[in-house]
Design a protein around this nucleic acid. Sequence first.
DNA 1: GTGTCAAATTAGACATAATCTAATTTATTG
DNA 2: CAATAAATTAGATTATGTCTAATTTGACAC
Lengths: 145, 145
Amino acid sequence: MNTDPIKRSLEAGGLRCTPQRYAVMAFLREHEGHPTAAEIFEAVNRRCYSGKDPRSSRATTYNNLRDLVEAGLVREVAVEGRAARFDAKGLRNHHFICDRCGKVEDVEWYDVPRPRSGSLGKRVLRECELIFRGLCAKCAARRSS
Amino acid sequence: MNTDPIKRSLEAGGLRCTPQRYAVMAFLREHEGHPTAAEIFEAVNRRCYSGKDPRSSRATTYNNLRDLVEAGLVREVAVEGRAARFDAKGLRNHHFICDRCGKVEDVEWYDVPRPRSGSLGKRVLRECELIFRGLCAKCAARRSS
DNA sequence: GTGTCAAATTAGACATAATCTAATTTATTG
DNA sequence: CAATAAATTAGATTATGTCTAATTTGACAC
């Protein structure tokens, strides 16, 4: 009986369940932050997520991230900066980006009022995310010291 | 008498007013979209914004974009995708990102209700931007054809 | 358990985006 | 005009991401 949630979500997304994909999903699900592809690549090669030899090539990690994003299982986080960042598509979050250190933190989701009628013209709205900016708790504490 | 707004804004930001910087600011102020650094580099080398030889090296364009962002005169737009995108810090906008074609469009600003008390913990909030996602007018029209 | 086969992986080459470096130029100021 | 720190430069370098052809493999049918 197939009860593993990662395996089920891959299959639901039309993707084969390979050890490399499993490792990426497992890492993103237990990792709190928003890692870059390089961080994900290093992680899946450092620790065994799937019980098998975890080695994965860089191209595979990039390919898999793209496939998982397209399948809706992983989301790329909209942040400034050089490298793309990812998180597993669990609960939706808003994000807080620190002006000083650049850290991206999850903020509990709440629904945002839609823009007033006509504001979006003929666009079709799917989602509305908030990006908060300011100083994270750590940088705010440093500034007032 | 120094009345040029670009020159004044550079000086207010603590930066020397060089022809290369002037050209970047001028381009971003009149450009509606959110160009990449490569597009900015090509533009400032294609057309004379400052009345002088517009040539600028790639490193200079990148250096200047970084300095202008740090000085608060230009903002990097938070979007997914490979290359950073920029706009001049004029009127604040929200953004609409198309799921299909990736285009980033400005949406007229309105203030968003702040998150409920305690939600942000000890962070210091400066700004709250909305990112809308869905289909742009063009892609929405194509889909229903 | 075996065979099939399309999906996926691989390793390294390649492409794109962005940064670094040391020498040189220049904007600003006195 | 001279001084000087800020800025520019050109190309090397690094970081990020993609491509390619050969090989492997997950899932399925039998």
